[in-house]
Every structure is written in structure tokens, then in C-alpha cells.
Simulated scan of single mutants.
Amino acid sequence: MALHSSSDQYGSVAVTIHWLTAVLIVIALLTGFRAAAAEDVTTEAALLRVHLPAAALVLVLTVVRVVWWLGIDDKPEPIDGAPRSQQLIAGTVHLLFYVVVFGMIASGIGMMLASGAAPAIFSRDVPALPEFWHYRPRIPHGLGARLLVLLLIAHLAAALYHHLRGDRVFRRMWFGRNPKS
């Protein structure tokens, strides 16, 4: 598999960034939702110790992805015969992913700065954590998390739809050569 994308296959760099980001987003979402529901400070802090680095890595990978697409690599052509409406929906969902991810990162950083929670989260003895819902960035962060879940569901549903149709969309974003069928 080539580093760069071809007209019908994503390259290994794009594929790696995609799947690492996907796993890290799921980790960040799961730990974020669990931390918000945690009943004791020790559990909440432990979950946030995973949540914050996962989110930071999502930011780094997303910036690398944007730089990769803007300056280094070209995306493959749309699948032959894909209706224009599907291409438009796919483009919109992907754009929303970027907007929501950057919004989530910004609101998360805003919460950490406003609450001053980072030192407590990463200390050995966590005496207390702030009530995050008292800070304004919590509202867009919570809404963004729910929107991100909906986008992931839509993205997975579309991938499954295309996989079941046999139109190679899933194989284009996986490792190995995508034989044209």
C-alpha cells in the first residue's frame, strides 16, 4: 500500500490517521460520558486522565489530517456511479466531523482553563473536582458530544450500506490494495 492516495484508494497515511482518530474519538466519547456520570471523584478523575490525552491526540491527528489533505495528498475520486446527492451528504458529514471535533477540543480546553481542573485531575490525590456544568463551555461540549455520536452513527450506517452494496467504499479506507471490481 502506497503512502499517498491513488484515484481509487486512500494511502496508508490517510488510512492510519482515519482509524487511529476513530478509535481515539470513541475512547474520548466513552470516557467523557462515563466521567460525567461518575458518582465519585476518583472514578471521574481516572476517566478524565484517559479522556484528556485521547482528545489531545484527536486534535493532533485532525490537524495532521487537514495538513495532509491540503498540502501533501489528494483524496481518491468518488466511487463510479455514486449519485451526486450521496457525494454531497458524505462531504457534509465529513465537514461536520471537522467542525464538531475542533469545537469539542475548543470547549474542552475552555472548560479546563475556566475550571482549573487539570492539576487536580492529574494529581495523585484528587481532593475534589469542579462541577463542570457550572462552566459555559460545558454546554457546547455536551451538545458537541451528542452531535458527534449522531455523526458517527450516520458515518457507520453509510459505510455499512456501501459495504453491503459491494461498491468498495469500505475497502478504499482499509489497508492493502483495493482491486477494482
Rank of each mutant, 00 (worst) to 15 (best):
R177P: 03
K75D: 06
H51R: 05
V23A: 15
G108C: 03
G103A: 07
D73L: 04
S7W: 07
G103T: 04
V58L: 01
G108S: 03
Y161D: 14
W133S: 13
K75Y: 02
D125W: 04
A2V: 01
W69V: 06
H94L: 11
Y135K: 07
L48R: 11
H141G: 09
A120N: 05
I27V: 15
A82R: 10
A45D: 08
G166Q: 05
V169N: 00
R171H: 08
A118Q: 06
P119V: 01
H163S: 10
A46L: 08
A37K: 15
Q9F: 08
F122Q: 07
S12F: 07
Y98F: 13
M1R: 05
L96H: 00
N178P: 00
P119C: 05
G32N: 10
G32H: 04
L148R: 05
Y98A: 03
G116S: 10
V50A: 14
T42Y: 00
A82F: 04
S85I: 14
D8Q: 13
L147Q: 03
G144I: 13
P78L: 09
I139D: 13
V169F: 12
F122C: 11
V58R: 02
V26M: 11
H18S: 13
T92Q: 04
A117R: 04
A37T: 08
A36L: 12
I17K: 12
F122V: 10
G103K: 09
L30Q: 08
V66I: 14
H141E: 09
A45H: 10
H4I: 11
L156F: 11
L3S: 12
M1D: 11
G108P: 02
K180N: 13
L164T: 11
V101K: 08
W133R: 10
Q9I: 13
P140N: 05
G108D: 00
H155G: 01
W19C: 12
E77D: 15
A14Q: 07
Y135V: 05
R177F: 07
D80Y: 02
P76M: 13
A36F: 10
P83C: 09
M1P: 05
H141C: 11
V58A: 02
L30A: 15
S7V: 13
P83T: 12
G142M: 12
V100T: 15
A145W: 02
S115D: 01
F102A: 05
S6K: 09
V26R: 07
E77Q: 07
M111C: 08
R138M: 14
V66Q: 04
V101C: 08
A118H: 01
F122N: 08
A38Y: 04
G166K: 01
A45R: 00
R168A: 06
P76N: 02
I121H: 01
E44N: 04
V41D: 14
